[in-house]
Amino acid sequence: MIINAVQIPAVVFQLTQLLLVVLAAPLLTGWVNQCQAWLQNRSGAGVLQPYRVLHKLFLKDAVIAYNASWLFRVTPYVVFGCMWLAATIIPIIAVDLPFSRAADVIALVGVFALARMFGALAAMDIGTAFGTMGARREMMVSFLAEPALLMVLFTASMLSHSTQLPYIVSAFSRHQFMLYPSLAFAALAFLIVLLAENARIPVDNPNTHLELTMIHEAMILEYSARHLALIEWASSLKLFAYFSIGIALFLPYGIAEVGHWSALPLSILLLLFKLALAGVGLALFEALSAKMRIFRAPEFLGTAFLLAVLGLLIHFLLSA
Protein backbone atom coordinates (compact mmCIF):
# COMPACT_ATOMS: atom_id res chain seq x y z
CA MET A 1 0.00 0.00 0.00
CA ILE A 2 3.00 2.26 0.17
CA ILE A 3 2.97 4.15 -3.08
CA ASN A 4 6.55 3.54 -4.09
CA ALA A 5 6.27 -0.19 -3.49
CA VAL A 6 3.29 -0.60 -5.77
CA GLN A 7 4.34 -1.48 -9.29
CA ILE A 8 2.18 -0.89 -12.29
CA PRO A 9 1.78 -4.62 -13.11
CA ALA A 10 0.48 -5.25 -9.61
CA VAL A 11 -2.18 -2.59 -9.99
CA VAL A 12 -3.13 -4.02 -13.38
CA PHE A 13 -3.39 -7.49 -11.86
CA GLN A 14 -5.56 -6.11 -9.11
CA LEU A 15 -7.90 -4.30 -11.48
CA THR A 16 -8.08 -7.30 -13.80
CA GLN A 17 -9.14 -9.46 -10.92
CA LEU A 18 -11.61 -6.84 -9.68
CA LEU A 19 -13.43 -6.91 -13.01
CA LEU A 20 -12.99 -10.59 -13.71
CA VAL A 21 -14.48 -11.55 -10.37
CA VAL A 22 -17.56 -9.41 -10.54
CA LEU A 23 -18.32 -10.44 -14.12
CA ALA A 24 -17.56 -14.11 -13.74
CA ALA A 25 -19.30 -14.75 -10.44
CA PRO A 26 -22.83 -15.19 -11.88
CA LEU A 27 -21.35 -17.50 -14.50
CA LEU A 28 -20.09 -19.77 -11.73
CA THR A 29 -23.53 -19.88 -10.13
CA GLY A 30 -25.03 -20.62 -13.54
CA TRP A 31 -22.53 -23.41 -14.07
CA VAL A 32 -23.31 -25.03 -10.70
CA ASN A 33 -27.05 -24.79 -11.43
CA GLN A 34 -26.55 -26.26 -14.89
CA CYS A 35 -24.55 -29.18 -13.48
CA GLN A 36 -27.32 -29.79 -10.96
CA ALA A 37 -29.87 -29.77 -13.75
CA TRP A 38 -27.87 -32.34 -15.70
CA LEU A 39 -27.52 -34.52 -12.62
CA GLN A 40 -31.27 -34.32 -12.12
CA ASN A 41 -31.82 -35.29 -15.77
CA ARG A 42 -33.14 -31.85 -16.70
CA SER A 43 -31.87 -29.83 -19.61
CA GLY A 44 -31.44 -26.71 -17.42
CA ALA A 45 -31.66 -23.04 -18.21
CA GLY A 46 -28.13 -22.63 -19.44
CA VAL A 47 -25.09 -21.15 -17.75
CA LEU A 48 -26.07 -17.60 -18.66
CA GLN A 49 -29.39 -17.71 -16.81
CA PRO A 50 -28.14 -15.76 -13.73
CA TYR A 51 -27.24 -12.80 -15.97
CA ARG A 52 -30.73 -12.77 -17.45
CA VAL A 53 -32.24 -12.90 -13.97
CA LEU A 54 -30.07 -10.03 -12.78
CA HIS A 55 -30.94 -7.94 -15.82
CA LYS A 56 -34.64 -8.57 -15.31
CA LEU A 57 -34.42 -7.67 -11.63
CA PHE A 58 -32.58 -4.44 -12.30
CA LEU A 59 -35.30 -3.34 -14.70
CA LYS A 60 -38.12 -3.83 -12.22
CA ASP A 61 -39.47 -1.25 -9.80
CA ALA A 62 -38.32 -1.85 -6.27
CA VAL A 63 -41.08 -2.50 -3.74
CA ILE A 64 -40.25 -2.28 -0.06
CA ALA A 65 -42.43 -2.53 3.03
CA TYR A 66 -44.01 0.58 4.53
CA ASN A 67 -41.95 0.34 7.67
CA ALA A 68 -38.60 -0.40 6.04
CA SER A 69 -35.86 1.83 7.44
CA TRP A 70 -32.71 3.20 5.86
CA LEU A 71 -30.81 0.18 7.13
CA PHE A 72 -32.93 -2.03 4.90
CA ARG A 73 -32.13 0.03 1.82
CA VAL A 74 -28.41 0.39 2.48
CA THR A 75 -27.81 -3.28 3.22
CA PRO A 76 -27.80 -4.62 -0.37
CA TYR A 77 -25.04 -2.19 -1.27
CA VAL A 78 -23.03 -3.04 1.85
CA VAL A 79 -23.38 -6.76 1.27
CA PHE A 80 -22.48 -6.46 -2.39
CA GLY A 81 -19.51 -4.20 -1.66
CA CYS A 82 -18.17 -6.52 1.03
CA MET A 83 -18.46 -9.62 -1.11
CA TRP A 84 -16.87 -7.94 -4.07
CA LEU A 85 -14.01 -6.80 -1.90
CA ALA A 86 -13.64 -10.27 -0.39
CA ALA A 87 -13.47 -11.91 -3.80
CA THR A 88 -10.99 -9.29 -4.92
CA ILE A 89 -8.38 -9.74 -2.21
CA ILE A 90 -7.93 -13.48 -2.66
CA PRO A 91 -5.03 -14.18 -5.02
CA ILE A 92 -6.32 -16.49 -7.72
CA ILE A 93 -4.76 -15.39 -10.96
CA ALA A 94 -1.70 -13.56 -9.67
CA VAL A 95 0.09 -13.48 -6.35
CA ASP A 96 0.93 -9.82 -6.45
CA LEU A 97 -2.22 -7.99 -5.34
CA PRO A 98 -1.49 -4.62 -3.74
CA PHE A 99 -4.79 -4.37 -1.90
CA SER A 100 -4.18 -7.64 -0.07
CA ARG A 101 -1.79 -5.79 2.18
CA ALA A 102 -4.60 -3.66 3.57
CA ALA A 103 -6.66 -6.70 4.52
CA ASP A 104 -5.21 -10.04 5.53
CA VAL A 105 -7.01 -13.32 6.23
CA ILE A 106 -8.42 -12.14 9.56
CA ALA A 107 -9.80 -9.05 7.84
CA LEU A 108 -11.20 -11.33 5.15
CA VAL A 109 -13.19 -13.19 7.79
CA GLY A 110 -14.15 -9.76 9.14
CA VAL A 111 -15.50 -8.71 5.72
CA PHE A 112 -17.69 -11.78 5.59
CA ALA A 113 -18.87 -11.05 9.12
CA LEU A 114 -19.66 -7.43 8.25
CA ALA A 115 -21.82 -8.51 5.32
CA ARG A 116 -23.54 -11.15 7.41
CA MET A 117 -24.27 -8.74 10.24
CA PHE A 118 -25.89 -6.24 7.90
CA GLY A 119 -27.81 -9.00 6.19
CA ALA A 120 -29.18 -10.31 9.48
CA LEU A 121 -30.08 -6.84 10.72
CA ALA A 122 -31.88 -5.99 7.48
CA ALA A 123 -33.79 -9.25 7.74
CA MET A 124 -35.08 -8.18 11.13
CA ASP A 125 -35.92 -4.69 9.96
CA ILE A 126 -39.37 -5.33 8.53
CA GLY A 127 -40.39 -7.40 11.52
CA THR A 128 -41.89 -10.40 9.81
CA ALA A 129 -41.85 -13.89 11.23
CA PHE A 130 -39.71 -15.35 8.46
CA GLY A 131 -37.24 -12.51 8.43
CA THR A 132 -36.33 -12.81 12.08
CA MET A 133 -36.29 -16.59 11.84
CA GLY A 134 -33.87 -16.40 8.95
CA ALA A 135 -31.65 -13.93 10.78
CA ARG A 136 -31.57 -16.11 13.89
CA ARG A 137 -30.73 -19.23 11.93
CA GLU A 138 -28.11 -17.49 9.84
CA MET A 139 -26.38 -16.26 12.99
CA MET A 140 -26.63 -19.73 14.51
CA VAL A 141 -24.93 -21.31 11.52
CA SER A 142 -22.31 -18.62 11.30
CA PHE A 143 -21.20 -18.51 14.92
CA LEU A 144 -19.77 -21.98 14.40
CA ALA A 145 -18.77 -21.61 10.77
CA GLU A 146 -16.85 -18.37 11.27
CA PRO A 147 -14.39 -19.64 13.90
CA ALA A 148 -13.95 -22.82 11.88
CA LEU A 149 -13.01 -20.74 8.84
CA LEU A 150 -10.66 -18.68 10.96
CA MET A 151 -8.96 -21.83 12.24
CA VAL A 152 -8.57 -23.15 8.69
CA LEU A 153 -6.94 -19.91 7.66
CA PHE A 154 -4.77 -19.98 10.79
CA THR A 155 -3.46 -23.41 9.88
CA ALA A 156 -2.45 -22.04 6.51
CA SER A 157 -0.93 -18.95 8.13
CA MET A 158 1.09 -21.08 10.53
CA LEU A 159 2.48 -23.15 7.67
CA SER A 160 3.44 -20.13 5.64
CA HIS A 161 4.38 -17.81 8.54
CA SER A 162 2.11 -15.04 7.32
CA THR A 163 -1.50 -13.98 7.52
CA GLN A 164 -1.17 -12.21 4.18
CA LEU A 165 -2.90 -14.12 1.45
CA PRO A 166 -0.29 -13.37 -1.24
CA TYR A 167 2.47 -14.77 0.96
CA ILE A 168 0.43 -17.81 1.93
CA VAL A 169 -0.37 -18.61 -1.66
CA SER A 170 3.12 -18.09 -3.00
CA ALA A 171 4.53 -20.22 -0.17
CA PHE A 172 2.11 -23.03 -1.01
CA SER A 173 2.51 -22.80 -4.75
CA ARG A 174 6.26 -23.22 -4.50
CA HIS A 175 6.04 -26.41 -2.44
CA GLN A 176 4.95 -28.69 -5.26
CA PHE A 177 2.36 -31.18 -4.03
CA MET A 178 3.72 -31.37 -0.55
CA LEU A 179 1.24 -32.92 1.80
CA TYR A 180 0.79 -31.33 5.19
CA PRO A 181 -1.30 -33.47 7.56
CA SER A 182 -2.67 -30.37 9.28
CA LEU A 183 -3.79 -28.98 5.94
CA ALA A 184 -5.76 -32.16 5.22
CA PHE A 185 -7.88 -31.59 8.34
CA ALA A 186 -8.23 -27.96 7.42
CA ALA A 187 -9.41 -28.87 3.92
CA LEU A 188 -12.13 -31.11 5.30
CA ALA A 189 -13.27 -28.41 7.71
CA PHE A 190 -13.20 -25.86 4.94
CA LEU A 191 -15.52 -27.95 2.77
CA ILE A 192 -18.12 -28.03 5.52
CA VAL A 193 -17.79 -24.29 6.11
CA LEU A 194 -18.14 -23.64 2.40
CA LEU A 195 -21.40 -25.58 2.28
CA ALA A 196 -22.79 -23.87 5.36
CA GLU A 197 -21.78 -20.33 4.55
CA ASN A 198 -23.07 -20.47 1.01
CA ALA A 199 -26.43 -21.83 2.08
CA ARG A 200 -25.96 -25.13 0.26
CA ILE A 201 -27.38 -28.58 1.02
CA PRO A 202 -27.13 -30.16 3.62
CA VAL A 203 -27.32 -27.04 5.82
CA ASP A 204 -29.61 -24.92 3.71
CA ASN A 205 -31.05 -25.15 0.23
CA PRO A 206 -30.56 -22.23 -2.17
CA ASN A 207 -33.55 -23.29 -4.26
CA THR A 208 -36.05 -23.74 -1.48
CA HIS A 209 -39.02 -21.64 -0.73
CA LEU A 210 -40.39 -24.20 1.64
CA GLU A 211 -40.74 -21.75 4.45
CA LEU A 212 -39.87 -23.78 7.48
CA THR A 213 -36.57 -25.07 6.21
CA MET A 214 -35.05 -22.00 4.67
CA ILE A 215 -32.32 -19.87 6.16
CA HIS A 216 -30.75 -17.55 3.64
CA GLU A 217 -33.89 -17.27 1.50
CA ALA A 218 -35.94 -16.36 4.56
CA MET A 219 -33.62 -13.45 5.22
CA ILE A 220 -34.03 -11.92 1.80
CA LEU A 221 -37.77 -12.54 1.36
CA GLU A 222 -38.64 -8.86 1.55
CA TYR A 223 -36.19 -7.73 -1.08
CA SER A 224 -37.19 -7.11 -4.67
CA ALA A 225 -35.85 -5.69 -7.91
CA ARG A 226 -32.43 -4.00 -7.74
CA HIS A 227 -31.97 -4.78 -4.06
CA LEU A 228 -32.64 -8.45 -4.67
CA ALA A 229 -30.39 -8.38 -7.73
CA LEU A 230 -27.51 -7.01 -5.69
CA ILE A 231 -28.03 -9.59 -2.98
CA GLU A 232 -28.20 -12.43 -5.51
CA TRP A 233 -25.08 -11.12 -7.17
CA ALA A 234 -23.42 -10.88 -3.78
CA SER A 235 -24.32 -14.52 -3.12
CA SER A 236 -22.65 -15.47 -6.38
CA LEU A 237 -19.62 -13.43 -5.40
CA LYS A 238 -19.54 -15.15 -2.03
CA LEU A 239 -19.57 -18.57 -3.65
CA PHE A 240 -16.84 -17.38 -5.96
CA ALA A 241 -14.83 -16.05 -3.02
CA TYR A 242 -15.13 -19.32 -1.11
CA PHE A 243 -14.10 -21.33 -4.16
CA SER A 244 -11.19 -18.93 -4.54
CA ILE A 245 -10.12 -19.42 -0.94
CA GLY A 246 -10.26 -23.17 -1.44
CA ILE A 247 -8.22 -22.94 -4.62
CA ALA A 248 -5.76 -20.49 -3.11
CA LEU A 249 -5.12 -22.62 -0.03
CA PHE A 250 -5.32 -26.13 -1.35
CA LEU A 251 -4.70 -25.95 -5.13
CA PRO A 252 -2.66 -22.80 -5.84
CA TYR A 253 -0.52 -24.40 -8.55
CA GLY A 254 -0.16 -22.44 -11.75
CA ILE A 255 -0.80 -19.01 -10.29
CA ALA A 256 1.13 -16.14 -11.86
CA GLU A 257 4.12 -15.08 -9.78
CA VAL A 258 5.08 -11.49 -9.10
CA GLY A 259 5.45 -9.49 -12.34
CA HIS A 260 4.97 -12.42 -14.69
CA TRP A 261 2.88 -10.99 -17.50
CA SER A 262 3.30 -14.00 -19.69
CA ALA A 263 1.93 -16.35 -17.07
CA LEU A 264 -1.33 -14.47 -16.84
CA PRO A 265 -3.30 -16.10 -19.72
CA LEU A 266 -2.31 -19.58 -18.60
CA SER A 267 -3.20 -18.83 -15.00
CA ILE A 268 -6.63 -17.53 -16.00
CA LEU A 269 -7.26 -20.67 -18.04
CA LEU A 270 -6.14 -22.86 -15.16
CA LEU A 271 -8.36 -20.93 -12.80
CA LEU A 272 -11.38 -21.41 -15.03
CA PHE A 273 -10.64 -25.11 -15.18
CA LYS A 274 -10.33 -25.36 -11.38
CA LEU A 275 -13.52 -23.40 -10.82
CA ALA A 276 -15.42 -25.53 -13.29
CA LEU A 277 -14.18 -28.65 -11.56
CA ALA A 278 -15.12 -27.28 -8.14
CA GLY A 279 -18.58 -26.42 -9.48
CA VAL A 280 -19.09 -29.97 -10.67
CA GLY A 281 -17.93 -31.22 -7.30
CA LEU A 282 -20.39 -28.99 -5.45
CA ALA A 283 -23.28 -30.04 -7.69
CA LEU A 284 -22.39 -33.69 -7.26
CA PHE A 285 -22.18 -33.36 -3.49
CA GLU A 286 -25.53 -31.61 -3.35
CA ALA A 287 -27.12 -34.24 -5.54
CA LEU A 288 -25.87 -36.99 -3.29
CA SER A 289 -26.81 -35.56 0.10
CA ALA A 290 -30.06 -34.61 1.78
CA LYS A 291 -30.85 -31.52 3.80
CA MET A 292 -30.55 -32.06 7.52
CA ARG A 293 -32.82 -30.86 10.30
CA ILE A 294 -31.96 -27.41 11.54
CA PHE A 295 -30.59 -28.56 14.89
CA ARG A 296 -28.35 -31.11 13.25
CA ALA A 297 -26.56 -28.18 11.61
CA PRO A 298 -24.69 -27.13 14.78
CA GLU A 299 -23.36 -30.68 15.16
CA PHE A 300 -22.28 -30.69 11.52
CA LEU A 301 -20.55 -27.35 11.93
CA GLY A 302 -19.18 -28.32 15.32
CA THR A 303 -17.43 -31.15 13.49
CA ALA A 304 -15.92 -28.63 11.12
CA PHE A 305 -14.76 -26.50 14.03
CA LEU A 306 -13.20 -29.48 15.79
CA LEU A 307 -11.49 -30.64 12.60
CA ALA A 308 -10.04 -27.20 12.06
CA VAL A 309 -8.78 -26.99 15.64
CA LEU A 310 -7.34 -30.48 15.31
CA GLY A 311 -5.51 -29.36 12.19
CA LEU A 312 -4.01 -26.47 14.10
CA LEU A 313 -3.10 -28.70 17.05
CA ILE A 314 -1.39 -31.18 14.75
CA HIS A 315 0.63 -28.37 13.29
CA PHE A 316 1.71 -27.29 16.77
CA LEU A 317 2.57 -30.85 17.77
CA LEU A 318 4.57 -31.58 14.63
CA SER A 319 6.45 -28.32 14.70
CA ALA A 320 7.24 -28.43 18.41
Partner: peptide, 18 residues
Amino acid sequence: ERASYSPVYFLLAVLGVM
Protein backbone atom coordinates in the same frame (compact mmCIF):
# COMPACT_ATOMS: atom_id res chain seq x y z
CA GLU B 1 5.42 -9.85 5.16
CA ARG B 2 3.81 -11.47 8.15
CA ALA B 3 0.76 -9.39 8.66
CA SER B 4 -0.57 -5.97 7.94
CA TYR B 5 -3.87 -4.20 8.10
CA SER B 6 -4.93 -0.80 6.92
CA PRO B 7 -8.37 0.29 8.06
CA VAL B 8 -8.31 3.54 6.10
CA TYR B 9 -7.75 1.79 2.79
CA PHE B 10 -10.24 -0.81 3.82
CA LEU B 11 -12.91 1.78 4.52
CA LEU B 12 -12.12 3.64 1.32
CA ALA B 13 -12.36 0.45 -0.68
CA VAL B 14 -15.68 -0.60 0.83
CA LEU B 15 -17.15 2.87 0.45
CA GLY B 16 -15.77 3.24 -3.06
CA VAL B 17 -17.19 -0.08 -4.20
CA MET B 18 -20.53 0.69 -2.56
